[in-house]
């Protein structure tokens, strides 16, 4: 029986961290004893250009090496990228997670997506907690809440391992708070 894969597609602008977020997610999933891939899409684009990254997650070994075409979840890190294209191929029960201050109606209008939409003000939370507008950590918290492919604990541990040596205790705590707020404050519709 072929392994069942859970697939995520990330939309951001080059430099906004979709690649790092997808990698961090893969590592946290792996630490849980599961299997994961993370791979960005490369072109000739420079900072600011729309870009995509992907995750493929499974309980068993993943052998497939093609692009993700039918994601279970689409994460949009920058709401200026919202368009019908971001939900292209999304599965019937798929979820759209958006970092935005706009209401859900706005997102439906922009994307023509009728399925489940979850939003959070990840950039605002990041600014409040870590004083920098880097929303990755916050969004990963939301991904943990919505998808169940990764636990909050595993992400916390990953962040501790990754930043533990590089960041001050204070900054590490701020990042962990940002992660938890993402988990708690994401709100869904539909």
């Amino acid at each position: 029986m072929p392994a069942k894969y859970y697939e995520i597609r990330w939309h951001s602008r080059a430099g906004q961290g979709a690649k790092s977020a997808s990698q961090l997610l893969a590592e946290a999933v792996l630490d849980m004893g599961k299997y994961a891939q993370a791979f960005p899409e490369y072109g000739a684009e420079r900072s600011g250009a729309p870009m995509r990254a992907f995750n493929r997650i499974s309980d068993g070994k993943i052998t497939i090496h093609s692009s993700v075409e039918k994601p279970n979840v689409v994460v949009v890190i920058d709401d200026t990228l919202l368009s019908p294209a971001v939900v292209e191929g999304i599965t019937e029960d798929g979820v759209l997670i958006v970092n935005t201050t706009h209401p859900v109606d706005y997102i439906r209008k922009k994307t023509h997506f009728n399925g489940k939409i979850c939003t959070l003000k990840a950039t605002d939370i990041a600014l409040e907690e870590i004083k920098r507008g880097i929303p990755n950590t916050v969004i990963l918290g939301a991904v943990a809440k919505i998808t169940n492919v990764v636990t909050l604990e595993s992400l916390e541990q990953k962040i501790k391992n990754m930043f533990g040596k590089k960041l001050s205790e204070e900054m590490l705590e701020a990042n962990l708070r940002a992660l938890r707020r993402g988990y708690e404050e994401v709100a869904c519709d539909g």
């Binding site: 994961a36 791979f39 490369y42 090496h65």
Partner: peptide, 12 residues
Amino acid sequence: QDGFIISHGVEA
């Protein structure tokens, strides 16, 4: 190894 597919893809 396959460019990007393997070189830039994260796996266990």
